[in-house]
Design a protein around this nucleic acid. Structure first.
Lengths: 283, 283
DNA sequence: CATCAAATGTAGTAAATTTACAACTTATTC
DNA sequence: GAATAAGTTGTAAATTTACTACATTTGATG
């Protein structure tokens, strides 16, 4: 992928002159991307077509294309690794690591998400008579957040932290209701039971959970998130952020589906809050 | 730094035709880097020199140089534009945009965060007799999450959603207590009042909020997060994610400060949960 | 040492980018 | 509301850049 590595690897396959070009580029890639083919040829002490042939040998369309690849390889300033926090880390290190690994998790989550299912879930949500969000432990705050979002849409939305309340709520559900269950592992017993109860009452059950988990099997639709967790810390972090982002996406899909007039309504809700706030200084 | 962000920011400073170019590029940057100035001009329905002028306005040497910058911005690591969701976006687009802008916000948050203050807040938290987390609206779920994390540390930790409970709790606080207040805008009246009450009772008040806000002024320490929000959607999204990440960082700092034995204890808490879960299939 | 294949370079061509200038639009002033 | 200035945009020519076709060289082999 990285073109600099590729050059190093293929070095032996190059011809004498091509190798000269390779040396110069590896030696000072930053200069290379800002040079024309003529300057680079002169620097490497070869002819221009040789430089061009060198580029083609690396599966690029030509010199300009090669420069783009090179530029991208050089831009990799933020290595993406899911680096784990270590005992010896100071504030600077762990802050950096947590930010980076959170971003990396989002990238992983993005790739693992299935757009079709998102679309179907949005469909369901827009048609639901009542929407419930349930989660336990760390996922409770995600459900809480979902409540906050969907509440603004003026849709009957339900959220309970209490397991018994969750059960009772599901027992009273019917086929027009959507129950969204959030769990990273998908192995929390009481949540799986709740899924079961909800389905027994003909509600549609959507899981935001890990693929192939017991919970996933009880759901009508599963938004699976495969996010690596730093288990050393014994706390769910990345999974929650991914779940929240998914909630954001569902909420956004919901508002878009409901159209422009609906957005007006949202604005009104927001404006209502104004009275509870200090005015923003105009500067 | 990132040129896509730069385009979005300077959008207002552009002329009409330049803005057309900006639209096209933001809309499909991947295509842009592989196009010639002529194709891009045609796509934007402007003349070639206009495209060139557009590039210069962004402090690049010219079109080829601009493409290099763009390529670098698109490379893994810093790909993220703060692109806003639009009415016409389908599930694919808005999913992509939300993931990307969330990641971008985290990058912005990372840069705006002050490590020294993080360190001092961790100090305070480890020494606190009682820790309270309060937030309202969207920030309530962040406080909720913080409760979840710090609860595991076997520290007296308090969280209320109810404003009155928050007030009463703060009235009973003393100089060994730390009150963490979470608010994106920092202009929520009741939260500012709570900060005032807590300080009047000698508690240390930490704000996770925007710099120079009324709330920030009432706090002993401010962890300021300057995160751009897509106000079109009328819902806080990015700010929450950044706040949560900050909570993760504080929690991590906390566990690290408490040392190895403490981590043992965390593991025990986690093991206790096992009974409530289905066993993980060994495969 | 003749011959072929691979490698490299030369020169010309095509393409892309930039510059200079003219036409046009939009604000500003009297 | 006309006159003028400032800013914006486009046309066409100039220049730079990259590529192609072909010629020359190098080196290996019978």
């Amino acid at each position: 992928m990285n073109i600099l590595e590729k050059i190093t690897q293929n070095k032996s396959a190059f011809s004498k002159s091509e190798r000269k070009v390779a040396e110069i580029i590896l030696d000072n890639p930053q200069t290379a991307i800002h040079s024309s083919i003529a300057t680079l040829a002169k620097m490497s002490d070869v002819s221009e077509p040789t430089v061009n042939r060198f580029c083609r040998r690396l599966d690029t369309k030509g010199f300009p294309d090669f420069k783009l690849h090179l530029a991208q390889s050089l831009a990799n300033g933020t290595p993406y690794v899911n680096r784990h926090v270590e005992e010896s880390d100071g504030p600077e290190e762990y802050t950096k690591k947590i930010f980076e690994s959170t971003m990396a998790s989002l990238e992983v989550a993005r790739q693992s998400v299935d757009i079709n299912i998102i679309n179907r879930v949005v469909d369901l949500l827009t048609q639901a008579q009542k929407i419930s969000f349930f989660g336990l432990g760390a996922s409770a705050s995600v459900a809480h957040d979902a409540l906050n979002k969907f509440f603004r849409f003026n849709v009957p939305v339900v959220y309970f932290e209490d397991v018994l309340m969750q059960r009772m709520s599901c027992m009273n559900s019917n086929e027009d209701d959507v129950v969204v269950l959030i769990s990273h592992t998908g192995r929390t017993k009481s949540l799986v039971e709740i899924a079961h109860i909800a389905r027994a009452n003909d509600a549609t059950v959507v899981g935001i959970t890990s693929k192939n988990s017991p919970l996933a099997k009880e759901c009508n639709l599963v938004l699976s998130l495969e996010v690596p967790e730093d288990t050393d810390m014994y706390m769910p972090m990345a999974s929650r952020i991914a779940q929240l982002t998914l909630i954001d996406i569902l909420a956004t899909g919901f508002t878009l589906r409901r159209g422009g007039k609906f957005r007006e309504n949202l604005k009104r809700v927001k404006d209502t809050l104004r009275g509870s706030r200090f005015e923003k200084r105009q500067d």
